[in-house]
C-alpha cells in the first residue's frame, strides 16, 4: 500500500514537472505575442526606421539586415560544415587528426557567443580591416554556426545505409563517385534541415553583434557586404534597454515577435523538408 502511494506521488511530481516545463515554454510565446501583436502592422514591417519617433517608422531595414546576415552566415558556414562532416563520416579513420577535429568541434560548440564576438572583432573587424560590416558579422556568426552544421550533417550521413556505399564501391566506383551519386542525394535533405535550424539560431544571436557592431539606425538598407547594417535581435536589445520612448518596450516586443516568427518559419520549413524526405524514402 505504502509503495503504491509513493508511486503515485513520485510519478505525479514527474508529470507536474513535464507539464510545468511545457507551460513555461508556451507562456514565453504568449508573453511575446501579447504586447508585440499590438504594434505590428504593414508600416511596422515594411516601413523605414524613424529614430526620432519610433511609432512612425517600421523595422524593414532590420528585417533585411537579419536576412542578409542569414545569407552571409549560410555562405560561410554551410559548405564548410557539410564538407567537414563528409570528411569525418566518409573518409576519416580514427586517427589523431580526426580525434583532434572532433574535440575542436565539440569545444567550438560550447564557446560562448560573446567570445565569438571578441574573436570576430579582433580578426575580422580589426586584423582584416572589414570594419563593423555585414561581412565581419557574417564571418563571426558563421564561425559559431559551423559546429552546428557539422553535427547535423554528420547525423544525416550516418542515416545513409552502408549498403549504398559498399554497393557502389564494389562496382568499381571511387570513393568520391560513391559519395556524389549515392550518399549525398540521400543525405542532403537532412543536411539542409540541420543547416536551416543552425542558421535560424545564428540569426537570433545578439551578443556577437553588440561587439562586432550592428547599428541602431541607418538610412535605407545595406547594398554592399562592407556596409553597416541593422539586425532584429540587436534592435530588440536597444529598444528594450536603451531607449526612453514610453512605448519602446512595446515596440521591442513587436520586433521580438517578428524575429521569433522568422525563426519559427525557418524551423517549420526545415521540418517540412525533413517530413517530405522521410515520407519518400524507403529504406
Amino acid at each position: 500500500m505504502n509503495d503504491k502511494i509513493k508511486e503515485r506521488i513520485y510519478l505525479g511530481i514527474f508529470r507536474l514537472c513535464g507539464i510545468l516545463s511545457l507551460l513555461i515554454l508556451v507562456s514565453i510565446l504568449i508573453f511575446v505575442i501579447e504586447p508585440g501583436i499590438k504594434v505590428i502592422d504593414l508600416n511596422f514591417i515594411l516601413g523605414m526606421w524613424q529614430t526620432q519617433d519610433i511609432t512612425k517608422g517600421g523595422i524593414f531595414p532590420a528585417i533585411v539586415g537579419t536576412f542578409y546576415l542569414g545569407i552571409g552566415v549560410a555562405v560561410f558556414s554551410v559548405p564548410v560544415g557539410i564538407c567537414c562532416a563528409i570528411y569525418l563520416n566518409e573518409y576519416a579513420r580514427n586517427t589523431g587528426l580526426v580525434r583532434m577535429i572532433r574535440l575542436a568541434i565539440r569545444n567550438l560548440a560550447g564557446v560562448p557567443s560573446i567570445v565569438y564576438g571578441l574573436f570576430g572583432f579582433a580578426v575580422f573587424v580589426q586584423f582584416l580591416h572589414f570594419g563593423t560590416s555585414l561581412l565581419a558579422a557574417s564571418l563571426t556568426l558563421a564561425a559559431m554556426t559551423i559546429p552546428w552544421v557539422i553535427t547535423a550533417s554528420e547525423e544525416a550521413l550516418k542515416g545513409v545505409p552502408d549498403g549504398f556505399r559498399e554497393g557502389a564501391i564494389a562496382l568499381g566506383a571511387t570513393r568520391w563517385q560513391a559519395i556524389r551519386t549515392n550518399v549525398l542525394p540521400s543525405a542532403l535533405p537532412g543536411m539542409i534541415t540541420g543547416s536551416i535550424i543552425g542558421l535560424a539560431r545564428a540569426m537570433g544571436e545578439t551578443a556577437p553583434l553588440i561587439i562586432v557592431g550592428a547599428t541602431f539606425y541607418m538610412r535605407g538598407i545595406p547594398d554592399s557586404p562592407f556596409d553597416k547594417f541593422m539586425a532584429l535581435p540587436y534592435h530588440v536589445f536597444i529598444l528594450a534597454t536603451q531607449h526612453n520612448h514610453p512605448l519602446a518596450e512595446q515596440y521591442a516586443a513587436g520586433t521580438a515577435l517578428v524575429l521569433v516568427l522568422l525563426i519559427f518559419l525557418m524551423a517549420l520549413a526545415a521540418m517540412i523538408v525533413r517530413y517530405n524526405f522521410r515520407r519518400k524514402r524507403r529504406w
Binding site: 549498403g163 559498399e166 554497393g167 557502389a168 564501391i169 562496382l171 542525394p185
Partner: peptide, 15 residues
C-alpha cells in the same frame, strides 16, 4: 573491383 564483383548479404539497391 570491376573485375571482381560482389553481391551482398542484404539486398542493397540504390534509391
Amino acid at each position: 573491383r570491376r573485375k571482381v564483383g560482389m553481391v551482398f548479404q542484404k539486398p542493397n539497391p540504390f534509391p
